[in-house]
Amino acid sequence: MDMKNNIIAEPDAVRKPTTLPRRSAVDLQAASVVFGSGEKAVTALSPTTLRLDAGDFVALVGPSGCGKSTILRLVSNLIAPSSGVVLVGGREAKVKALRIGMAFQNPTMLPWLTIEQNVMMPLKIVPPFKHSFRQDRKGAFRDRVHALLAQVGLAGFANHFPWQLSGGMLQRSNLCRALIHEPDLLLLDEPFGALDQFTREELWQILQDLYLDRKPTVLLVTHDLREAGFLAKRICVMSARPGRIISDEAVNIPQPRDIGMIYSPEFVEMTQGLRELIAQVRK
């Protein structure tokens, strides 16, 4: 990958430096989520405390339905906590103190837009880009989108419609859309879930490159333990529903990591440990 032409590196003029040096990027303080009320109430997330420093890369793993995605939805302010506090960039989540990029489990490309237009969408919505969107429309922004698409191996597909692309290509576009506006906080909800092993590993490396290049704060939800181990600096394990965090361990392997590493004994041992932990909490 050619990192010299990396478009994630952005001239200072566009960036607001105020958002970068904050200490805690995400701070959940005993945040819980309960859907419904009375006897029908379902607890999606038990009171959970989780803190991400700026530039951290945390993977959330755990059994299905344990509330991993709920945490992402809290942080991105798609839902509000039933109790507790969710701080993003030191302020309430709804203030959107940090620029957020989110990749959902399903690629959710808007079917009436081309890949280029889909990936460009955040630039149309998020300040400060939205203010210059109309003037820049044909020029700089389009170049950025094309460069980013090329970086994930989608050069030449900008003018395709989503239904013309394969699942893997859509996930790549999904990643591009989450990154194009240079988020301070990247929320990834099993973005590589539906992919074959080779494509997945390829995208892990792309994501690692993009992360190391820009150092956003990343919260990755996954149930692939190798994915968590390869990408994250910290792995948090959640218990079965109603979920809470039962383990929070650092991954002591320097980055950038090589994909061959996932077959090394230490790595296998680490993922085995996580695996046993999750197997226990599922019961």
């Binding site: 991105s76 302010n77 798609l78 959107k96 957020i100 989110m102 959902f104 399903n106 959710t108 808007l110 009436w112 837009l113 969408m121 955040p122 149309k124 919505i125 998020v126 859309r177 506006h181 929320l187």
Partner: peptide, 26 residues
């Protein structure tokens, strides 16, 4: 689809931006 609206909501889009960019084209 709420999923499509969520894409814009996470970006901090206003109600009218969601209407123009998702609701109406959809």
């Amino acid at each position: 689809e709420p999923d499509l609206e969520d894409v814009l909501k996470t970006l901090g889009a206003s109600k009218s931006e969601i209407l123009w960019n998702v609701g109406l084209p959809r």
